[in-house]
Design a binder for these strands. Structure first.
Length: 858
RNA sequence: GGGCGGUUAGCUCAGCGGUAGAGCACUACGUUGACAUCGUAGGGGUCACUGGUUCGAUCCCAGUACCGCCCACCA
C-alpha cells in the first residue's frame, strides 16, 4: 500500500526512543584554531559597524567556535557565509582539524554556505554532518562526508579499523574518491586514545589536548573561574589579568530524553521511511472538498499546513513495544567461479519483506537458491536492553544478532542466518489503521460494512496531526475510503494555571476526586459548559460547584412538583400541551420549545457550551425562577380545570427538563425520572422530543408574560431601592393603563400581587404625595410609600435612570440623524433603532412627569 | 526558529459588525411552605495597544506587546 525505503536518517536515539524535552542549559562555547594547510597565510581584517578597521593581523589559521568539541573528530568541512569578507581569501583552501595524532590529522576544506551567521562566534562553523541537525543540512548541500563518531550508548566508537587507516581512507574520500554511505559509516575516525570514552569525558579530553597544544584561542581575563588569579583583598590591587582560553558561557536549548533525562545525541542511523508525499494528496483533497469536515475550522488550517509541508515519514522506532517491522535481513550472496561467498557487511545486506518468519525463510531460501528452508535460520533480533548488550552499541542488526548468538554458544556456521529488523513501527503508523483494524480488516467483515466509514471522530486538537491526519491518509491509501465524515476537535483540559496536564509533570487532577466532591453530573455538565469550540478548558472548581448547585436546584424543583405535577397526562416525547387557558402555562410551553430548538441547533454545531448554558438558563431562569412561582397560585385555584391544566403542564415541563438535561446530567435525571412516575423506559431510552418552536410559541402569551415579569421586576427593584422591608406588602396605584395592559393585569393579577408583594390595586387620577412613579409598557403605576419616601433620594433615582436612558437615546438619535446611516444600514436595523428611540422617548417623558410631580410636592 | 490560538467585569470564560453577557466572587436585604448548595435587588468593563476599512468595530484587516499550545531534521 505504501512506498517505503530504508535510508540514513539524522534521527537520533540515545538509550531508547523517548519524547524529547527541550531545556535551556548553561553551555560553553570554545574557540579553537584550525591551522591552514600548506603554509597558507592571509590578512585577517575585522571592522566595526561603520566600516572602521578594528583588527588587522596575519593569520595562519581559521578560528572556530563550537559547543561540541568532541565532534570535531568527525568534521567534514569548515563553513563561512559567502558574504563574509574576512574569510574570502581562504575559501576553498584546506585546514587541519587540531585534534588526534599529529601525523594523521585530517585536512578539511573551507566552504561557503548560507547557514553560518557572520555576526555570531567567529563567523566560521565546523560541519559535522552526522551529529548535528543544522550541520547535516549543510553537509547534504555541499556533499560533505558525514562521519559517525559514537555508538548507541553515547560512547566514542571503538569498532572498526584503527584510526590511522580510517583517517587515510577518509582523506581519500574527501579528495573525491567515490564511497557508499555504508563505507563512510564504517570509518571510525576516533583516535585510539578517545575510543570507548563517554561523549562528555571525550569532550573534556579534546578540550584539554587542544589547549595543551596551544591551539585554543586565548583572551585576557581576571576571572578566577577561567584561570585568572583570585583577588587578594578588597579594593587594594586590581586582580591581575592573565591569558586564558576563550570560553564563552552560552545558554543553549538542548533536547533531553523525557524519560532517560539524557542529552539526546543526533546521530545517523538507518531507518524505514514512508513516502508521505505520495499518500498525502488524497488526504488533502478529502478535506478541501468537504468530504471530511474538521470543526473548528482552524483545525483545517493546521491540517493543510502540515500536510502541504510533509516530509518522508520515518516509521522506524527503537523501542520494545509495538509492531516489529516485518523485514528480515540476510547476507548478500556472491558466486565467483562457482564459489559462493556471503557478505555480512552492514552495507551489503539484502532484505526480505514477509508476513512472518516462515514466509521470510521461504523467500530467503528462494533468494539463496535453496530448495528447502533448512539452511535458513532466523536469529533473534538483538536485545535492546542496554545492560545486556552494552558492549555492542551496535547499529547493525545482523552483526549484533550474530554476536549475541555466538555469546549464547551457538555456531551459525553452515547456515544462512536471517534476522528481523529489531525496530518497531511508529505508534501512529500502527494506530493510523485503527478505523479498519478494529473492525476486522483485512477480512471483509460485517462490522466493516456496517461501521466504516464512521460519522464523527471526537478527539483532542493536539492529536490532529499525529493521529487524525494519519488515519485519513492511511485509510485512503489502504482501502481508498475516508475513515470518517467529520472530526470534532475538543479543547484540552488544563490545570488551574493553564498548563497541560501531564503524568510526568504531576499536575494531573484525578476526575474521581472531583466526582467524589461534586458528583459526576456536575463534572460532566461543567465539561460541556466549558467546551467552547477551539477553546482551552482551565478546570475551575468553583464553576463545577456551581453546576452541582444546578443539579440541586433541579432536584428541589422536582420535589415541589412532586405534590402537584401530573406526569402521565402527556407522552413525554410526543405529547404536547395544547388549548391551554392559562397564559403562564402557554408561555412555559413556548419557552420549552424554544430551548429545545436552541439545544438541537447547538449540538448539531458541536457547541456543547451553548447547549448546556441554554438549558441552564431555561431550567433555572425560566422554569424555577418564574414558572414554579406562577404555578403556585394556579395550583391553589378553586377552578379545578385550571388546577388540572397546570398540574399536567408542570408534569410535562419537568419531563422536558429531565429529557433535555439527560445527556448533560445523566445520573440525576435518571433518578428523578424513576422516582417521579411509573415509566415504561429508563430516561436513557426516552425519545428525544421533536416539537418545534414555531408550533408551540404563543406570541400573545409570550408578550403578556414578558410584560408581567417586567412589571414584577420593576416593582421589586423599586422596593429595594426605596428600602421597603422585604416582608411588607404595599398597595399599588394605577394611574393609567391601556387596554392590553389592563387585560394582562386582569389575567395575572394574582401572580403579580403575590410575587411583587402587592396587597391591593387602586385606580387613581393622580399620584398622591409620597408615591413613587413606576412606568411600564402601556401605562404608569405608582407605589405609595407615604412618609417613608425621601424626596431627594427619589429625585436622584429618577434622574439617574433618566440619565441612562438619555445617553442611549443620544446615541440612537445621532445615528438616525446621520443620513449615511439611514442610507447604508439595513432597513430592519434602522427600523429597530427608530422603535427603540420612540420607546426611550416614552419612558423619559414618563420619568420627567414624575420629576415634575416631585417638584410640586417640594 | 515555524505554525496555531489567546488577551472581554476581581476570577474562570462566552459573544464576534448595530454600542457587552454568564457562573463564581463582591454589596445590601431576606427563615414568603421546592430550594440558604437558596431568594430578591445591586455595584463592577476606554472588550491589551496602535493604525486602517465601514454610516457604525469588542467583532473585519495590518502592525505591536504579552501569554499559551503544538512542532522543532521538516515549519
Amino acid at each position: 500500500y505504501f512506498n517505503v525505503w530504508r535510508a540514513r536518517s539524522r534521527w537520533l536515539e540515545n538509550h531508547f526512543y523517548a519524547p524529547m524535552l527541550y531545556l535551556e542549559v548553561a553551555g560553553h562555547m570554545w574557540h579553537f584554531k584550525y591551522p591552514l594547510a600548506d603554509g597558507v597565510t592571509y590578512e585577517y581584517v575585522e571592522k566595526d559597524e561603520d566600516g572602521n578597521v578594528t583588527l588587522r593581523e596575519t593569520r595562519d589559521y581559521i578560528s572556530i567556535a563550537t559547543t561540541r568539541p568532541e565532534t570535531m573528530l568527525g568534521d567534514g568541512a569548515v563553513a563561512v557565509h559567502p558574504s563574509d569578507e574576512r574569510y574570502a581569501p581562504i575559501v576553498g583552501k584546506l585546514c587541519e582539524i587540531p585534534v588526534g595524532p599529529k601525523e594523521h590529522r585530517r585536512l578539511i576544506p573551507i566552504i561557503t554556505d548560507e547557514y553560518p551567521d557572520p555576526d555570531f562566534g567567529s563567523g566560521a562553523v565546523k560541519i559535522t554532518g552526522a551529529h548535528d541537525f543544522n550541520d547535516y543540512q549543510v553537509a547534504k548541500r555541499g556533499g560533505i562526508p558525514m562521519y559517525r563518531l559514537m555508538d548507541t550508548q553515547g560512547k566514542m566508537r571503538a569498532d572498526g579499523a584503527g584510526y590511522a587507516q580510517c583517517a587515510e581512507t577518509a582523506q581519500d574520500i574527501a579528495g573525491g574518491r567515490e564511497a557508499s554511505e555504508a563505507e563512510v559509516d564504517a570509518l571510525n575516525l576516533v583516535p585510539e586514545s578517545y575510543r570507548g570514552l563517554d561523549r562528555f569525558e571525550a569532550r573534556k579530553r579534546v578540550v584539554a589536548d587542544i589547549t595543551a597544544e596551544g591551539l585554543a584561542v586565548m583572551t585576557m581575563s581576571d576571572d578566577p573561574r577561567l584561570g585568572g588569579k583570585p583577588k587578594k583583598t578588597k579594593g587594594e590591587e586590581p586582580a591581575p589579568m592573565v591569558e586564558v582560553p576563550l570560553v564563552e558561557a552560552k545558554p543553549i536549548m538542548q533536547p533531553f530524553g523525557d524519560r532517560s533525562k539524557v542529552v539526546i545525541e543526533p546521530m545517523l542511523t538507518d531507518q524505514w521511511f514512508v513516502d508521505a508525499e505520495k499518500i498525502v494528496g488524497p488526504a488533502l483533497d478529502s478535506v478541501r472538498s468537504g468530504e471530511v469536515k474538521i470543526v473548528p475550522e482552524s483545525g483545517e488550517k493546521t491540517y493543510y499546513h502540515w500536510l502541504e509541508n510533509i516530509e518522508p515519514w520515518c516509521i522506524s522506532r527503537q523501542l520494545w513495544w509495538g509492531h516489529q517491522i516485518p523485514v528480515w535481513y540476510g547476507p548478500s550472496r556472491e558466486v565467483v567461479n562457482g564459489v559462493e561467498t556471503l557478505n555480512f557487511e552492514p552495507g551489503q545486506l539484502v532484505h526480505f519483506v514477509a508476513r512472518n518468519a516462515e514466509e521470510a525463510r521461504a523467500k530467503a531460501a528462494a533468494h539463496y537458491g535453496h530448495e528447502g528452508t533448512e539452511k535458513i535460520i532466523v536469529l533473534r533480533s538483538f536485545d535492546r536492553d542496554p545492560p545486556k548488550n552494552a558492549e555492542d552499541g551496535n547499529l547493525d542488526p545482523m552483526s549484533g544478532a550474530i554476536a549475541a548468538t555466538q555469546r549464547a554458544g551457538y555456531d551459525p556456521e553452515g547456515t544462512i542466518p536471517i534476522v528481523q529488523d529489531p525496530d518497531v513501527l511508529d505508534t501512529w503508523f500502527s494506530s493510523g489503521l485503527w478505523p479498519i483494524g478494529t473492525l476486522g480488516w483485512p477480512e471483509d467483515s460485517d462490522e466493516l460494512a456496517r461501521y466504516f466509514p464512521t460519522s464523527v471522530l471526537v478527539t483532542g486538537q493536539d492529536i490532529l496531526f499525529f493521529w487524525v491526519a494519519r488515519m485519513i491518509m492511511m485509510q485512503l491509501a489502504v482501502v481508498d475510503k475516508i475513515p470518517f465524515h467529520e472530526v470534532y476537535l475538543h479543547g484540552l483540559v488544563r490545570d488551574a494555571k493553564g498548563k497541560k496536564m501531564s503524568k510526568s509533570v504531576g499536575n494531573v487532577i484525578d476526575p474521581l476526586e472531583i466526582i467524589d466532591e461534586y458528583g459526576a453530573d456536575a463534572l460532566r455538565f461543567a465539561s460541556a459548559a466549558m467546551a467552547a469550540l477551539g477553546g482551552v478548558l482551565k478546570l475551575d472548581m468553583q464553576r463545577i460547584a456551581g453546576y452541582r448547585n444546578f443539579g440541586t436546584k433541579l432536584w428541589n424543583a422536582t420535589r415541589f412538583a412532586e405534590m402537584n405535577a401530573v406526569y402521565d397526562h402527556y407522552d413525554p416525547a410526543a405529547g404536547v400541551p395544547s388549548d391551554l387557558s392559562q397564559t403562564a402555562n402557554a408561555w412555559i410551553v413556548g419557552e420549552t420549545a424554544r430551548v429545545r430548538e436552541e439545544v438541537d441547533a447547538a449540538l448539531a454545531a458541536y457547541k456543547f457550551n451553548d447547549a448546556a448554558l441554554g438549558l441552564y438558563a431555561y431550567v433555572w431562569g425560566k422554569v424555577c425562577d418564574w414558572y414554579v412561582e406562577f404555578a403556585e397560585p394556579l395550583l391553589a385555584s378553586e377552578d379545578t380545570a385550571v388546577q388540572a391544566e397546570t398540574r399536567q403542564t408542570m408534569g410535562w415541563v419537568l419531563d422536558q427538563c429531565m429529557i433535555l438535561l439527560h445527556p448533560f446530567m445523566p445520573f440525576i435525571t435518571e433518578e428523578l425520572w424513576a422516582t417521579t412516575a411509573k415509566r415504561p423506559n429508563m430516561i436513557v431510552h426516552a425519545d428525544w422530543p421533536s416539537y418545534g418552536a414555531s408550533d408551540l410559541i404563543n406570541s400573545a402569551a409570550d408578550k403578556e408574560m414578558t410584560w408581567v415579569i417586567t412589571l414584577i421586576e420593576n416593582i421589586r427593584s423599586l422596593r429595594a431601592q426605596m428600602h421597603v422591608p422585604a416582608g411588607l406588602k404595599l398597595p399599588l396605584l394605577q394611574l393609567e393603563l391601556d387596554e392590553a395592559g389592563q387585560a394582562a393585569w386582569d389575567r395575572n393579577a394574582a401572580l403579580i400581587m403575590r410575587l411583587a408583594r402587592v396587597e391591593s390595586l387602586h385606580l387613581v387620577d393622580a399620584l398622591p404625595k409620597g408615591a413613587v412613579t413606576l412606568p411600564c409598557e402601556g401605562g404608569v403605576f405608582g407605589l405609595p410609600l407615604s412618609d417613608a419616601i425621601d424626596v431627594d433620594e427619589e429625585k436622584e433615582r429618577l434622574s439617574k435612570s433618566m440619565g441612562k436612558l438619555e445617553k442611549e437615546l443620544g446615541g440612537l438619535q445621532g445615528r438616525l440623524n446621520n443620513p449615511k446611516f439611514v442610507a447604508s444600514a439595513p432597513d430592519e436595523v434602522v427600523e429597530e433603532n427608530r422603535e427603540r428611540a420612540a420607546q426611550l422617548q416614552d419612558e423619559i417623558s414618563k420619568l420627567s412627569a414624575a420629576v415634575d410631580r416631585l417638584a410640586e410636592l417640594a
